[in-house]
Amino acid sequence: MVLLRDEQGTAPRDVVALAEVSKVHGGRVRALDGVSVAFTRGTFTAVMGPSGSGKSTLLHCAAGLDRPTSGRVLLAGQDIGALREPRLTAVRRRHVGFVFQAFNLVDALSVWDNVLLPQQLAGTRPDRAWAGEVLARVGLAGREKARPGELSGGQQQRVALARALAARPEVIFGDEPTGALDLATGREVLRLLRQCVADLGATVVMVTHDPAAAAWADRVLFLADGRLAGELHEPTAQRVAARMMELTR
Rank of each mutant, 00 (worst) to 15 (best):
G154S: 06
A224V: 11
Q78H: 01
A217N: 02
G27W: 08
A17S: 15
A136T: 15
L4Q: 10
L165S: 01
T236W: 04
R239L: 06
T89V: 14
E85F: 09
V96L: 01
G71W: 04
R28H: 13
L4P: 07
E150C: 08
A82F: 09
V205L: 02
L165G: 00
Q156V: 14
V205G: 00
V115M: 09
T203S: 04
L3D: 00
R128V: 15
A131E: 02
L193S: 03
G49Y: 09
P68I: 10
R28G: 15
A217T: 04
G186W: 02
L190F: 03
E176I: 06
D107L: 09
V171S: 02
Q101V: 13
L151Q: 07
R227S: 09
F100D: 03
G154T: 06
A241H: 03
E176R: 08
L247G: 06
I172L: 14
A184K: 13
V21T: 12
A76T: 05
F222Y: 06
L135I: 11
R72V: 12
L109T: 14
G226W: 00
V16S: 02
S110F: 13
L74R: 10
T57F: 00
A184P: 05
G174R: 07
A160T: 12
F39M: 02
Q78P: 00
Q195Y: 05
R41Q: 05
E176C: 10
R158D: 05
D79S: 06
G9Y: 09
